[in-house]
Simulated scan of single mutants.
Amino acid sequence: MEEVIKRYTPFVIKTARSIYVKGQEVEDLIQIGQASIIKAVNMYDTERENAFTTYVFNTIRRTLYLLIRSSVKDAKCCSLNTSNNEGCELIDVLAGDEDIEEEMIKKEEKAMLAKALRKLNEQEKEIIYWFYFEKRSLREYASLKGIYYKTAGDRKKKALRKLKKCLEGMDFNGNI
């Protein structure tokens, strides 16, 4: 029996160190695991299909996991209404789905973009609005205004350069 216990004690130690049971020290868990080895030896059926080693490992795990389950008697310890060390309930300190910081950054970037757009002249505002907000083509814009397509493209590029310069002056960090 001592030889069997020595052979499986490293597994017991590894398993005992990997779990936490409230009120139990690692040494206690090791002793419980070693007792489960004795139990496995006494209960093993030699006519079983699975190997003795597998049976011992499973017995050790089941014994320690049963100990974990039995130690969680008070469901309040797992409640979101439990208070932490600072007196706040856990439900109040959990992170929400919304990212407030990201929302504030987007709001600030929109405000900077609106301010930069106000610095454009009417023709520049018109082409930016046409292309980016209405999502219409430059070809349509050129046809409507009676100008060449290349001229419409040049207007758009000029408006974007001016917009970019304004945004860079405001330390805009978003995508332009």
Rank of each mutant, 00 (worst) to 15 (best):
P10K: 07
P10A: 07
F11P: 03
T15V: 01
A16H: 09
S18L: 01
S18M: 06
I19P: 10
Y20W: 00
Y20C: 00
V21S: 13
K22S: 05
G23D: 06
Q24L: 07
E25H: 09
E25G: 09
E25C: 05
E25Y: 13
V26G: 03
E27C: 12
E27M: 13
E27N: 11
D28K: 12
D28P: 06
D28G: 12
D28M: 11
L29Q: 10
L29N: 04
I30W: 14
I32H: 14
Q34K: 15
Q34C: 12
S36I: 06
I37L: 06
I37T: 10
I37D: 03
I37N: 03
I37P: 04
K39T: 12
K39I: 02
K39D: 05
A40F: 04
V41P: 00
N42Y: 03
M43V: 03
Y44N: 02
Y44M: 07
D45Y: 02
E47S: 11
R48V: 02
R48F: 02
R48Y: 03
E49S: 08
E49T: 11
N50L: 03
N50E: 12
N50G: 09
N50Y: 09
A51K: 15
A51S: 14
A51P: 01
A51D: 12
F52R: 13
F52C: 09
T53H: 04
T53M: 01
Y55V: 07
V56P: 08
F57H: 05
F57R: 13
I60K: 05
I60H: 04
R61P: 04
R62S: 04
R62P: 00
R62D: 02
T63I: 02
T63R: 09
T63Q: 10
T63S: 07
L67N: 11
S71V: 04
S71G: 12
K73G: 10
K73D: 08
D74I: 02
A75Y: 08
K76V: 00
C78L: 14
C78W: 07
S79D: 07
S79I: 01
L80E: 12
T82G: 09
T82S: 12
T82A: 15
S83L: 11
C88R: 13
L90W: 13
D92W: 10
V93D: 07
V93E: 10
L94F: 13
D97H: 14
E98F: 07
D99G: 13
E103I: 05
M104Q: 15
K106S: 03
K106H: 05
K107R: 13
K107W: 08
E109F: 05
M112Q: 15
A114L: 15
A114T: 15
A114F: 05
A116Y: 10
L117M: 08
L117Q: 06
N121E: 10
N121I: 08
Q123W: 09
K125D: 01
K125H: 09
I127T: 09
I128W: 08
Y129A: 01
W130A: 06
F131Y: 15
F133E: 08
F133L: 08
E134H: 03
K135P: 00
R136T: 00
R136I: 00
R136Y: 01
R136F: 01
L138K: 04
L138I: 10
E140K: 11
E140T: 07
A142G: 04
A142D: 14
S143E: 13
K145A: 06
K145D: 03
G146F: 06
I147D: 07
I147P: 04
I147V: 15
Y148T: 15
T151A: 15
G153P: 09
